[in-house]
Design a protein around this nucleic acid. Structure first.
Lengths: 209, 209, 209, 209
DNA sequence: ACCTAATCGAGACGGTACGTCTCGTCTTTGG
DNA sequence: CCAAAGACGAGACGTACCGTCTCGATTAGGT
């Protein structure tokens, strides 16, 4: 800290170490990978970050909040590539999402944080704001492109359009998560292809393809 | 008892109190409702069941195993009604599943146990055996009926048929779980109708309906 | 068997396995050596003896009673040799007693059982009957010999004689036990010689010798 | 604090609650009186002291160490009065010691802790430092006075003098402890008189008195 | 050859205490 | 005023024994 302090600075006291924030989040992700959600402790995170436990509690209310913050950023790396067709775009984002869920910190954190949120309304909305709603952009973006290409009709009713976007988001995200974490089967290119076919053409058609 | 087996019939020694097993599982569900997964303690379950803590540990290796067993049975109540059409059948089972996920014990337990399983292979296979695979019967049954009715073609390749069944299962279960627990929006009759339409006819058609 | 009686010959039913009694006491002594009083458990003794825990409880009321019986017999091996003088006899018995207290089972058991007896009147009298009073014979015998040799006067008053015997017993046994177990110093030939001199001639004389 | 040291002055962190140490030792003595050694639990002591169990374990390694510390201080109250003659001094200290052994906390603790020490070298030296060696001062002091009065000769050889002091200590302490706790007979004025006579004049003379 | 009854082993039972761990808070020293 | 260090009260963890209680299987003596 290079500040030249004088008898009467406007702000008294030692300023917070800004670098500590990122060190703590990084330590949280590391601990999550090594120990998993349930075995992760505040004390362990503090030790890894080279910081006192007090500092953690000064900045986050508890384990839940800390972990949500630590993992939320991971989901922001998802991007919708423009591969020229709706089908290709969907498959690409499915595989991206699957790759994300393969990483131990994401894998562990996502379900744990959702589980915890079933009993904690504040946590639930924190998750929605930090993670879920941020990614709906992918659906909206994909639909827009498909409509531009003429693959999908332009919807007239805005309300219906929003509902459909939510529905599609739940279907895609839900299917991938369920396949990867609940069924615990690989989400590979073949599965992505079959899933996309089902999504685009429906059950009857998909059964034939 | 679902997957929790007492492998040795134990010809000698005092036999286990058979009634205690059910009392413990019932107490586990009650404790889960009242306290949630993370606050549930073995001691509390033991007290509610009128049983010593040691008895719990004699029969289950830990909290995870106990809760999986306690919850698995809840999913067995799902049934596929025969309502005359594939669409009606799917909507009905979606609503049934959603109702199940509304109940606090299911809601809390399912995600928690899945989260825990991301770090525990034994637990993962326990969940697959006790919960996931058991419910695939609904997909198989539904497809059979639809094929009998002529709504779906009969697939020739058994391998493809099995893959498709798994896919459909992940899509349905995943979408419902994601909607109910992650997006935290209601799974009502309207959502079920729109979801079923998407599933049966695909994205292009659904966008229009 | 010392004080542990099986009062009812039990005319009918399967008779007790007589060999088990000694096996159990032997196992108790072995366990005592290995684990010490406080770590000795009924279960461990049962296992060592190749016997069910139930069998132990059928024959002894608890740990205390069992251990007292197991060790009491050890003290019976003390004998007063006739070496021709009171001094030699005392030294010999002191060294015998010290050798006994060197053995781990005796060392551990004696103090433990006395400690336990400070809160248990029944146990106290069991110890007195089984261990303490049995060994007073050594004092009486030694005095008789010394009187026969003319080393000690014959006491007229029986009551005084008994009191003196008790006193001498406490002094000898107490000093040896205290040296060996509390001060934790060796009771060797030199100490025995110095102690005997003190006992026979008193402090003034001993200080000179 | 006797032998229980807090070796690190611990320049940083919250300092230990100094008052708790004495509260815990006091609670230990109270629990010892009420429950006895074997029934005394760390949890009970913590509750009585109004302190968490962890605080006990932070300061003492276990039950043994705690009880030794709690009890050691009791023996410091012994004092050698100057009654004008060696005989009177000895009788007085014997009766003082007996009175101490009448008190339930001392009675129970002394033997228990000695018993435990037969299997634990660290505990044994803790007892020697905290209890046994501290009281040898009484013997040294008594001899000095007797020598000043001319009742005892001044010993030339320092080594012999030390050995004799140890011997006398074992004889006095051992006899009183054995009488009080093993034989379980009262140590009253008469016994003290007869014991002192034996100690000062030896067996031959004592038999006559 | 049957009864009758106490024995045996095995091991489950409800309890209690253990010593450890983590929680989130509090209280110091020192920058 | 902040950071580190670490003590604090609370309470769950999973284990170990306790002493009791079923069990099925022996193993006699009495009939």
């Amino acid at each position: 800290m290079l500040s030249h302090s004088h008898p009467k600075p406007a702000r008294t006291g030692r300023p917070r170490n800004a670098a500590a924030d990122e060190a703590i989040l990084e330590a949280t992700r590391a601990s999550l990978v090594d120990l998993g959600w349930s075995k992760l402790t505040m004390g362990d995170v503090a030790t890894r970050a080279g910081v006192a436990k007090t500092t953690l509690y000064r900045r986050w209310a508890g384990k839940n909040e800390l972990v949500v913050d630590a993992v939320a950023v991971l989901f922001d790396e998802l991007e919708l590539p423009d591969l020229g067709s709706l089908s290709a775009d969907v498959q690409a984002v499915v595989l991206q999402f699957a790759a994300l869920l393969e990483r131990p910190e994401t894998r562990t954190a996502l379900m744990a944080v959702v589980a915890e949120s079933t009993r904690d309304e504040a946590l639930r909305s924190r998750i929605r704001d930090s993670i879920v709603d941020r990614q709906k952009r992918l659906v909206l973006q994909g639909r827009q492109r498909a409509q531009d290409r003429g693959e999908l009709p332009v919807e007239q009713d805005e309300v219906t359009a929003a509902l459909t976007a939510d529905l599609i988001f739940d279907v895609i995200a839900g299917a991938v998560v369920h396949r990867a974490l609940v069924s615990a089967e690989p989400v590979d290119a073949d599965w992505a292809r079959r899933f996309t076919l089902l999504l685009l053409t429906g059950l009857g058609a998909a059964a034939e393809g």
